Structures are given as C-alpha cells and as structure tokens.
Simulated assay, not measured.
Amino acid sequence: MSRSVTSVHPARRDDIGDLVTRRPVPGPGVDNVGAFLFLNHHGPQNYPPGNRGLPFGPHPHRGFETVTFILDGELAHTDSAGHESIIRAGGVQWMTAGRGIIHAEVSPEGFKRDGGPMEILQLWLNLPARLKMTTPRYVGVQADGIPAIEAEGATVHLVSGEWQGRRGAIESLTGVFLSWVEAQPGASVTFDGLRGRDVFLYAARGSIDVAGREVPQFHLAQLGEGESVTITATGPALFVFGHADPIDEPIVAHGPFVMNSAEEIRQAFADYQAGKFGVAEIVEG
C-alpha cells in the first residue's frame, strides 16, 4: 500500500537577525515527526560583501544528532571534540551530540568578505535513551562524496541508508535514511521499505505531489501508513525525504538539549556549566 498525505504544515517565518529562517517543525499541529524533531530552513538569500555571516557561535548540545544540508554557500564547523571543516554547496555535515558537545557553525572568512548565495537546512534527529550519552561524533562530506543517483528526471542525493542498491555517504547509528532530491517538472521518485517507519518529507524548493495532494514550497507533509510513497515534482523542485524507526520514549526538550526526563535536562545544564562539554574554537578560513 502506498502512503498518502494526511496533513500539510507551513513553515513559520522566524528570522534570526538578518538570517532568513523558516521552521516547519515544531509548529502548530506538529510537535515532531517521530524521530525527526526540528528543522530550520535558512535562506535562500544573498549576502553582500563585508557581511557578518551566520550567527551560530559556540553553543552546546546533548542527546540528539544534527544533520546540516548546505544547499548553497558554505559552512565552517568547529567543535569541542576537535573536529574542524568547511563544507561547501551540496555537502552535508552530521554531528552526533551524544553525551555533550559544544560546536560553532559560522561563515568562513572568504564568504564574509565576498558574500554570495546561502541556503542551509538543519535537521535534528532524536537518539534513543541507550545512545543519548554516546561518544560525540562528527562527519563532514563534500558534494562529490555523496552518491547522486539519477532517476528519470530526478537526482537522489543519498546521505544515509540504502536506495537502488547504493549506500549513503554516512552510516547512521540508528538506521536513519536521509536524502534530498532535485527533480525536474513531472519527474517521480518512489521510496519503499517504509512500513512501521517515521517518514519525513519537506518541500524546500518548488511544489511536489503525493497521491494527488499538493505539498507547496516551504511546507512539511505528514503521511499515513503504507509500504511506499511516490513523490512527483509539479515544477522544478528540491525536497528532503527521510525515514527512521520510531523511538517510543518520552521526549523532554529544553533549549539545546533533548533527553527523556526533566531531571536529565537539569543534569545536562549542570554538566555544561561545569565545563564537561569542553570548548569549541571558531574556525577561520
């Protein structure tokens, strides 16, 4: 049985200074999509020469993972576990905060000097209780390291999981499938193996159609049950598609921490204030 759309949710505009930001989840009528907790869509916008760049200086996380899609522009990452990178357009960074990490996500010096287009999506993925205190991890992959699978008018950029016999660039700790798809008008892509999985679908550029239901640009779709889904672009489109096993545990989120209880949140703040997350230096480049 194929999945259909049960509800469509617009991303709410919530700019951060001069950074254009839309957030489809959490929002009215949708706290989370199972294991998919949060999505910020920054841009698209053009930065002028001599700009201040992205505003995400050092800040902590515990208990979940962040996956950042750099659709346009570039992003400099530094964290307290010693990882540094500059990921450019078409690349992805996947960070497992686990037991605690401090990271900074800023614009490289060249981008601040010269300006240019910028569009970034950041998705938060829940971790089960058994992994919330796992060792922090970071993987940064440039565009040429991510399999790009052609599918009759569409290109599936396979970040994690398996599709059409290919494996994604990054191995998820919890078996999450993640991709983004660029599609020409009328192109269709079918994903299967979805029974019992939480499914995430967000139209970042252009509109898409699922079983006769339109999902406009900047909208999140929630889907019914089924084994597969077919997504058709009604014009030039780019969408994020993922699925994950449900995590049947309480979600207690406060600021930068996602745990299973209020006591664990209090402990996260205490550990951070005690310096147990280390220090992140901002990378230049």
Results as ranks from 00 to 15, higher is better:
residue 101 I to L: 14
residue 101 I to W: 00
residue 95 M to G: 03
residue 70 I to R: 09
residue 93 Q to T: 05
residue 70 I to K: 08
residue 106 V to M: 15
residue 78 T to M: 08
residue 86 I to Q: 01
residue 129 A to K: 15
residue 89 A to G: 15
residue 108 P to F: 09
residue 79 D to H: 07
residue 103 H to D: 05
residue 76 A to H: 04
residue 98 G to A: 12
residue 113 R to H: 12
residue 64 F to Q: 07
residue 66 T to P: 03
residue 64 F to G: 03
residue 93 Q to W: 10
residue 95 M to S: 11
residue 85 S to Q: 13
residue 121 L to P: 04
residue 109 E to R: 13
residue 125 L to F: 06
residue 105 E to P: 01
residue 80 S to R: 06
residue 113 R to E: 15
residue 121 L to F: 04
residue 104 A to R: 06
residue 126 N to R: 13
residue 119 E to V: 10
residue 79 D to E: 12
residue 81 A to G: 11
residue 111 F to D: 03
residue 80 S to H: 02
residue 75 L to A: 12
residue 95 M to A: 11
residue 123 L to N: 03
residue 79 D to I: 02
residue 118 M to C: 09
residue 108 P to H: 10
residue 97 A to K: 13
residue 125 L to D: 07
residue 111 F to P: 00
residue 97 A to N: 09
residue 81 A to Q: 07
residue 96 T to S: 15
residue 71 L to W: 03
residue 103 H to F: 03
residue 73 G to A: 07
residue 114 D to W: 05
residue 101 I to S: 01
residue 127 L to W: 08
residue 119 E to C: 13
residue 111 F to T: 00
residue 76 A to I: 02
residue 115 G to W: 11
residue 92 V to C: 05
residue 103 H to C: 04
residue 91 G to C: 13
residue 85 S to P: 01
residue 124 W to C: 09
residue 101 I to M: 10
residue 78 T to A: 15
residue 103 H to E: 03
residue 70 I to S: 03
residue 85 S to Y: 00
residue 108 P to Y: 09
residue 80 S to K: 05
residue 87 I to A: 08
residue 126 N to C: 12
residue 91 G to Q: 06
residue 59 H to I: 09
residue 128 P to Q: 13
residue 59 H to S: 01
residue 81 A to I: 15
residue 113 R to S: 12
residue 72 D to S: 15
residue 93 Q to R: 09
residue 58 P to W: 01
residue 113 R to T: 14
